[in-house]
């Protein structure tokens, strides 16, 4: 058989065929609502975020300090052992300069780009990253390997959500040393 010799299905429609109603269509917006149980690990994670802290979980078998926290170690396949707070600072593993919103709509010319990043959190096992946003930095200044610190919402505005951290901002070496010294566990 050769594809070239076959009559292939698939009738292409232009977007104007929809707009001008050349074809019949029907619409549906499903009401797909959920209330997912946070469970032990994520429940505690969110509760600590509300307090302005990031908490991780340790597995004594593989000695990993895991973020986001989990009640079982997916590699050792056993329960994890204890909680530990980690820093609210980290290192940019990778980043993007996003001009597109979640639904593929474009950000307007006056809207600044979004800068999502994978941030390896200090105090967790090397490589333990989380997805979050960078802020207070121009797109041209972002670098892989740069040190960043969480910028938290005001305590009264926090709800126990990943968005209790507004974004991570760059830290200068001196400032970071001072902050680390003053930080309470």
């Amino acid at each position: 058989m050769k594809l070239e010799d076959c009559k292939l299905g698939g009738t292409h429609l232009k977007s104007s065929d929809f707009e001008k109603c050349k074809v019949l269509t029907t619409e549906w917006t499903p009401n797909l609502g959920y209330a997912w149980d946070n469970g032990v690990a994520i429940g505690r994670y969110l509760a600590e975020l509300k307090e302005g802290k990031i908490i991780a979980r340790i597995c004594h078998e593989c000695h990993r300090i895991m973020l986001p926290p989990r009640m079982f170690c997916e590699l050792c396949f056993r329960p994890t052992d204890e909680w530990t707070y980690v820093e609210d600072t980290g290192v940019v593993n990778t980043f993007s300069i996003a001009r597109v919103n979640w639904d593929a709509s474009r950000r307007g010319p006056k809207e600044p780009p979004l800068i999502p990043a994978v941030i390896e959190i200090d105090g967790a096992t090397k490589g333990m990253g989380i997805l979050h946003m960078l802020g207070e930095i121009g797109p041209d200044d972002v670098k892989i390997g740069m040190k960043v610190r969480a910028v938290w919402k005001k305590p009264e505005d926090r709800t126990g959500a990943i968005t209790d951290i507004l974004y991570f901002k760059p830290v200068r070496a001196a400032a970071s040393k001072k902050a680390a010294a003053g930080r309470k566990r």
Binding site: D37, N38, G39, V40, A41, G43, R70, F72, F77
Partner: peptide, 19 residues
């Protein structure tokens, strides 16, 4: 209802028992 566990924690329990 099982409000005390996430789906991950729920399944882990069944899996651990099975193994």
């Amino acid at each position: 209802i099982t409000p005390d566990v996430s789906y991950r924690e729920l399944i882990f329990e069944a899996a651990r028992k099975a193994y």
